[in-house]
Nucleic acid binder design. Structure first.
Lengths: 105, 105
DNA sequence: TTCCTTTATCGGCGAATGGCGATATAAGAG
DNA sequence: CTCTTATATCGCCATTCGCCGATAAAGGAA
């Protein structure tokens, strides 16, 4: 995972509403559309749609057109990759072999 | 870790330059000041100082006044807490304890 | 004291963000 | 066909971000 990509995902997750949306989507395993999410939040439908777009563009969620509505689901494997990338960042910080490090694997 | 706090940290990390700064600070075990970081980046000193402030406000790094300069170090335990909070978020997404989940492991 | 170095902060500027209402599109329902 | 529902997108506006140069404050050296 590139640094830019990692930063993108982190920034997408860096908003309380979007974290909340993620949890809502994760809780309901199937068939969660924009209005469903909106009813759980004190925000306008357009605002929720924009937040969904941010998460979508970051690759954190998926869209599944289902009849007249769009159902959103969490892309867990993508979040796992994020966890891995984050772990790699942490490992780099832990190692701290000044400059002459003989390098990672 | 509250959602707002979590979102704050994620947003602070959600910028390529700040990720880079984190790595720089993690690489050099001690005595890394603002100008040191600036020399590793194609940015003005004031810009780097602002990024350091963002990371500082988010609690991701610490400042240690050392003579005339300020040395910054990574707060690893804070990042570990972030990892834990993130893991909790993931777990919540995995669990999905609700109505009809017949669902695979 | 007088420099010099380091740093944080200020002001400014263009771009992005986050919120809203209004609207256009698309898919069913009747 | 018409009507309704669901959604995305389009302004619009206020705020924040990211960047810069310039400057002030503070510590150390001469």
């Amino acid at each position: 995972m590139e640094d830019d990509d990692l930063a993108n995902v982190l920034r997408a997750l860096g908003h309380p509403v979007r974290l909340h949306i993620l949890r809502i989507l994760g809780r309901q395993r199937s068939d969660c559309c924009c209005t469903d999410v909106t009813q759980c939040l004190p925000l306008a439908q357009s605002t929720v749609s924009q937040h969904l777009k941010v998460l979508l563009d970051a690759g954190v969620i998926e869209r599944h057109p289902r009849g007249t509505r769009n159902c959103y689901t969490v892309r867990r494997e993508r979040l796992e990759n994020l966890g891995i990338a984050f772990g790699g960042l942490m490992a780099g910080l832990e190692a701290a072999p000044q400059e002459k490090s003989t390098e990672p694997v």
